[in-house]
């Protein structure tokens, strides 16, 4: 079974930007509601596979996409 993590962002717009940039780089993503235990905010987060974490965070940094943080699920 795949293990997942989420990238928390500052807004749904940022989540969509994150998703688009990662998708262009061939990383599998899914936009999900922010898990309640991770944040009280009501927006969306980007789910990725745990094993893509490093690559994904690198790509986001390269593209100047600001994120809040990464959390394992």
């Amino acid at each position: 079974m795949d293990e997942y993590g989420v990238i928390l962002t500052f807004s749904t717009g940022h989540a969509i930007r994150t998703e688009n940039v990662l998708a262009k780089a061939g990383i599998e993503t899914k936009l999900i509601p922010v898990p309640r235990h991770l944040s009280s905010d009501c927006g969306s987060a980007v789910r990725i596979k745990q094993r893509d974490r490093q690559k994904a965070l690198g790509i986001l940094a390269q593209n100047a996409v600001s994120i809040d943080r990464y959390e394992p699920l």
Partner: peptide, 20 residues
């Protein structure tokens, strides 16, 4: 857009983001 996690709100945000 950007106000709730449900898929219609996300769809609205996609439209707004796509316009940007």
């Amino acid at each position: 857009p950007g106000r709730s996690g449900h898929y219609l709100s996300v769809e609205a945000e996609r439209i707004r983001y796509g316009t940007r």
